[in-house]
Amino acid sequence: MRLINDIVKRFGADKVFRCKKELKDKILWAGATSLTDGSLDTRAMPRRFGHPQFHKALVEAVPQNTLRHIAKTSSSIKPA
């Protein structure tokens, strides 16, 4: 997850959201699955994903059962 975090930090959420759908979905999936991790540090990393299109893209990229597990945390991710 640290690698994904570094990519988002380096390029910025805007550039990540302009990537091809397949790549963007993989990045969002990695972020979503890290929100279910037991480590507090790992769960904090996806907060860099904040972007106006974040929730729409997340719903498109991540299965409903995972979305239910991360609903509280994902709703706290604010646009950058």
Rank of each mutant, 00 (worst) to 15 (best):
M1L: 15
M1Q: 13
M1R: 14
R2G: 08
R2E: 05
I4C: 11
N5W: 08
D6F: 10
I7S: 05
I7K: 09
I7L: 15
V8E: 02
V8T: 15
K9F: 09
K9P: 06
R10I: 12
R10S: 09
R10L: 14
F11I: 12
F11L: 08
F11V: 11
G12A: 03
G12F: 01
A13W: 03
A13F: 01
D14E: 14
D14W: 10
K15C: 05
K15Y: 07
V16E: 03
F17L: 08
F17R: 09
F17I: 08
R18P: 03
C19W: 07
K20Y: 14
E22N: 12
E22P: 03
L23H: 15
K24V: 04
K24A: 04
K24W: 02
D25P: 01
K26S: 06
I27T: 11
I27S: 07
L28R: 01
L28V: 07
L28T: 08
W29T: 06
W29C: 10
A30Q: 07
A30I: 11
G31Q: 00
G31K: 00
G31E: 00
G31D: 00
G31I: 00
G31R: 00
A32K: 02
A32E: 01
A32H: 01
S34N: 09
L35D: 00
L35A: 05
L35E: 00
T36Y: 02
T36L: 05
D37E: 05
D37M: 03
D37C: 04
D37T: 04
G38K: 10
G38C: 05
G38I: 13
G38F: 11
S39E: 06
S39W: 05
S39A: 06
L40W: 10
L40R: 12
L40N: 04
D41A: 09
D41N: 08
D41Q: 05
D41P: 13
T42R: 15
T42Y: 04
A44T: 14
A44S: 12
A44E: 12
P46T: 02
P46I: 01
P46A: 00
R47G: 13
R47C: 13
R48V: 15
F49V: 04
G50L: 00
G50F: 03
G50E: 01
G50K: 02
H51V: 09
P52I: 07
P52L: 03
Q53G: 11
Q53F: 05
Q53A: 13
Q53D: 11
F54D: 07
H55S: 04
H55G: 11
K56E: 09
A57F: 09
A57Y: 12
L58R: 03
E60I: 13
E60R: 08
E60G: 07
E60V: 06
A61I: 03
V62T: 10
Q64M: 13
Q64C: 05
N65V: 12
N65C: 05
T66E: 14
T66H: 12
L67T: 07
L67M: 08
L67P: 05
R68E: 12
R68H: 08
H69P: 00
H69I: 04
H69W: 02
I70N: 00
I70L: 14
A71K: 15
K72M: 08
T73V: 13
T73R: 12
S75E: 11
S75C: 10
S75N: 15
S76I: 06
S76A: 14
I77Y: 13
A80P: 13
A80R: 09
